[in-house]
Design a protein around this nucleic acid. Sequence first.
RNA 1: GGUCGCAUAGUUCAGUUGGUUAGAACGCCUGUUUUACACACAGGAGGUCUCCGGUUCGAGUCCGGAUGUGACCA
Length: 828
Amino acid sequence: MLGDTAVCVHPTDERYMHLVGKSVKIPLNDRIIPIIADALLADKEKGTGAVKVTPAHDPNDYACYTRNPEIGVINILNPDGTLNEHGGEWEGVDRLEVRGKVVERMNELGHYEGVEDRVIPLKHSDRSKTPVEPYLSDQWFVRMGDDEDGKPGLAQKAVDAVEDGRVRFFPSRYKKTYTDWLAEKRDWCISRQLWWGHRIPVWSKTFNNSQKAEETVKEFSSRWDDYCWRISESDPSTVLMCIDHQDEDIMEAVEKMLKTEGYVQDPDVLDTWFSSALWPHATLGWPDLERNPPLDEEELAKQTQSLSTLAPGPSTENKVLPYFYPGSVLITSRDIITLWVARMVLTGLYNMDDVPFQHVHVHPKILDGFGQTMSKSKGNGVDPVDLIEKYGADAIRFTIASFAGETQDVRLPISYECPHCGEMIAPKQYKVATSTLVVPSTMKGDFPVPQGAPKPTLVCSNKKCKQESQFTTPLYDPDEGAAVAKMVSERFEYGRNFCNKFWNAARFAMMNLVESDNGAGYTPDEVTEDQLQLEDRWILSRLSTVASEMDEYLGRYQFDAATRAVRDFTWNEFCDWYLEMIKPRLRDAKSRAVAQRVLLSVLDSLIRLLQPFTPFICEELWQRLKEIAPERALPVSSPGDSPGAKLTTQSVADACINASWPTIPSSWQDEALEKRFARLQDTIVAVRNVRAIYNIPPGTSIKLLMRTAADVAGDMESVASQFENLAKAVLEAAGADVERPIGAASFSLGDADGYIPLEGLIDTAEELERQKKKLAEVEKHIKGAESKLNNEKFVNNAKEEVVNGVRETLANQQSQRERIVEIIRDLS
RNA sequence: GGUCGCAUAGUUCAGUUGGUUAGAACGCCUGUUUUACACACAGGAGGUCUCCGGUUCGAGUCCGGAUGUGACCA
């Protein structure tokens, strides 16, 4: 009320329209203020419909003042929250106290009608939790708008850099966040009233009159023409001076001079984002363009190797800056696209006349299991060090990379780990006062903890344990020496299991690369096409496909897809099929050498592909393999060098981290071969399925007959040993005229039928049931395909290849149906 | 209030320009100490893709709306 400068009503409010233009008196200090009409501020429905206007201490009222500048502004607060001279008798008293006093005084004066409770949005300081008092103050701004002559200003230039593709966002939708915000071109307030930060390099002195100030500017501008001297816009008798010099001695001398002349440095520091915006070039020595950035001796020695092209040692030119600026990619979180990314671009354009980076990759944010941002104050975060101890650094990195897709956020449900038995205890949300915390679901005790009372504990839910422990929470520090339940997330088992799998696969490979009872150690030699077995050609085809997929995904920053591709290949193809299939060859002296060479070649590529995600394991394996095979058969880097050879002998880098990224020839990809291989896999799975259904012990060998066309039969026969190896089934016969034996289990694939004689073991009723189920499935699909093909519109409108695809499927399904029907007839 | 997301199996997530039977991991069920790996292997169950409407021969996918949920900005 003490700072009010008007009373505002709605311009269409009939109750008050006649009062607009008149004045009222503030009873507290007898100040006269006008009654004004403002449609944006006043709301006829709320309260009396008339609202007091306090421009200095309310953003909405300030906006009203800018529309009605004649009402003026009165700032009634001191920086410490007490009232200033406009507070009258309450000058120097804290605002909180004055609020009560004002009500009392109004009552005394007979103007008190009552107090009404009302919920209002009130911002609080994040640090002190005190309500924020809006307050008018002088601040430093950087102008974002265009120049007066219409040339693009800082904001527009930064928008242009993204619009014309000099800077690209991944995922691209974040471009909008950036350009929308910059397009507002709001001036950037860069001053902060804090202790920590770059101090604003502006000095000032207030003279007795403006003439003296002007003379000073003239005189000093010619004497110190490196620096910027100005008359303050808000006070014509104040001189401002901006100091900046990269030479510390000169800086010191200038500061000394300023102090003797009576100049004072601005007490504010720069906005943290202003300082951060300098990062891409300031870290590379800017603004010193004469010398490379300072490095300590040891560091310099290391750097000179990789930076040898940059003329190490003393130089008269900063060569590091042009070498590293602009950078290639900035990886960041979406909540600082405006604060940091935009500021880096516009600052880089201003200082360096170039963008700071070409790509901006915005990664998802990790939320807890309840969908909340992880934060210390909620107590729902995980400590990476705890995770690394529990799961391993590579496992964490691999798992995190597998989260990093194009979505906005990912959930990471956390649990508490009982320090006594390792049991995982689920969390729950828990309300304390106004905040929601995360605590163990089995928490014993309550918050807040009364003085001297025991701290709440986690009670282990494992019936064999039931012990109590303290837990990580923002509400108390654990007692010294107390058992503390760590917060972990079982989702990291994904990465841990994979790392373990990969490690064991490599271990298996190494066991078979050295001399052992199984045969000789690794010998490097080239591998030619005709030495390759079906499984070799298959794994090399798959490797080539996966490597090219990885290139594509990494180029788009789709780390989740990249980890999935390499994991699936490693686990489901390399381990589950390839390693199993070559085991017999590794035991056979005649075929061992070639199998070793192909195996190591694939493993070598795999280690390189996995290096970005599991660097520690990869380096360890690399070093061990280098002992076994410093030279090895690897994909021919430039075809034509060694015609006929698929793999040639090459030496490898000292360390995995220095090894080149694998380039697998795309000509290795063989779709037809992969299809043939898939049929073999399907057959083996079908045989295993029969074994599982009839509970045939793993040691028992079974017979297999395949009825199929001659070419497929030939394929089957050529890999007959693998049926034995992978399904313990002996291929008795394969061909078009194979008959289904009596008392056999059957399975039907797209273009082949399999029969497994199980005399005595077979349960006819159960087998019939199984076949009928399968028939129903096939018929469902046939029906679907038929209804499509009977639909004229589909046949006429759909792409030809789609229609043909459906026809092909239908034909396959129909022939499969026939065969199942046959089997059912035999069984019945 | 404005803008940008998300909603698919019990859970956490894939699903590229609309087009064969919607996939994975974990969990669950059955079996296996098979000499790399039980943090494993083999097999299996589990989804009317949040709801309503539209476009289309055809929608998890495109459009509109609703509901829930998240972020940024005001």
